[in-house]
Amino acid sequence: MPNTKTVVPFTGTAEQEQRLMDVIARHKGQSGATMPVLQEAQAIYGYLPEEVQIKVAEGLGISLSEVYGIASFYTQFSLNPKGQIEVNVCLGTACYVKGAGEILARIERKLGCKAGAVTPDGKFSVDATRCIGACGLAPVIVVDGDVYGRLVPDDVDAILDKYL
C-alpha cells in the first residue's frame, strides 16, 4: 500500500533539517529520547512526515516502525500539516451523543479528507477533538476559529462553502 497517511508532498528545507539534526544530537543516547525528539521535530516541521520520521529513526538508532508506532499512538502528533483553514469537530461526550459522528462524516465527504489529514491543496485540515467546553451548543464544530453549534449534518455544506 502506498503511504496514504501523509497526503501532501514533503517540502522540508535544509535549514529545518539542520535544526532537526541539532535536536537529535542533543538527545542521542538518552533513554526515552524518542518522545522529546518527535515533539521538537513537529515544532520544526509542523507535522511528522515519513521523511522526518526516517531521520529521527536513523539519528536515534531505532527502527522506523518504532518511531511510527509512537507517532501514531499519541494524538499530539500529526502525520499531516495543518491546512490554511482548520476544521475541528468536537467528539466530546455531549457532542458525540448529539450526532457529532455524522457531522464529521459529512465534513470528511464534502472535503474528501479524513480526520487527521489535510486536503491535497493544503487548504483544509480536519481534526476530531476532545471536548472543547461548549457542550450547551452540542454538536459543535470550529472552523478557522469560528464556532458553529447545534448542527445537523445538512448544515455542513453551507458552512464550509463560506471558506472555499
Binding site: S65, E66, Y68, G69, S72, F73, Y74
Partner: peptide, 8 residues
C-alpha cells in the same frame, strides 16, 4: 524491526 503496533 519492520513491524510494530500502530495506532491506539
Amino acid at each position: 524491526a519492520v513491524i510494530g503496533p500502530n495506532d491506539r
